[in-house]
Amino acid sequence: MGVVSLHPVDYIARTREQYDALGYEPYRWAEWPEPPAWTPLAKPVEESTVALLGSGGAYQEGQVAFHWQDDTGIRMVDTAQPASDVRVTHFAYDLLPAREDPNIVFPVDRLRELVDEGFLGGLAPEAVAFMGGIYSVRRAEEELTPRILEAVGAMDVDLALLVPV
């Protein structure tokens, strides 16, 4: 599994320090200490159809782009089109590299290739794209999450891969 040293950047601590230095109110991260729900895989990955969900703000030409003020909408992105046709918009990460190669936040080309080589069973025809960085947990729960559940519920998929930024 490659290099084993594990010293992840502690973004929570770093954000806390930076907000404090700027005189901001402390940012409150979402915390759910209760154990998460659990659904076992129904079949091996190589037989499973995968739904891609990405919070990097992807959209496609013809769609209204995300705005940058707690946009709780979703966009359904055609996974048959090359990633080079996917657009990204987001207020809170460096968009330049992702616009050069959208696969780094929305890996549709790579997932198609894994299907082609037989590593995955299939890829859902549409991916669910949304924009993270919604500062209201309540709005994420009450507006965004139901839209995602409805979209994925309408798909015939076996599992979901979630790619945040």
Partner: peptide
């Protein structure tokens, strides 16, 4: 949040 909700809805 999304992962927890999807899993509760039966999607791994």
């Amino acid at each position: 949040l999304v992962a927890r909700a999807l899993e509760a809805a039966g999607v791994p």
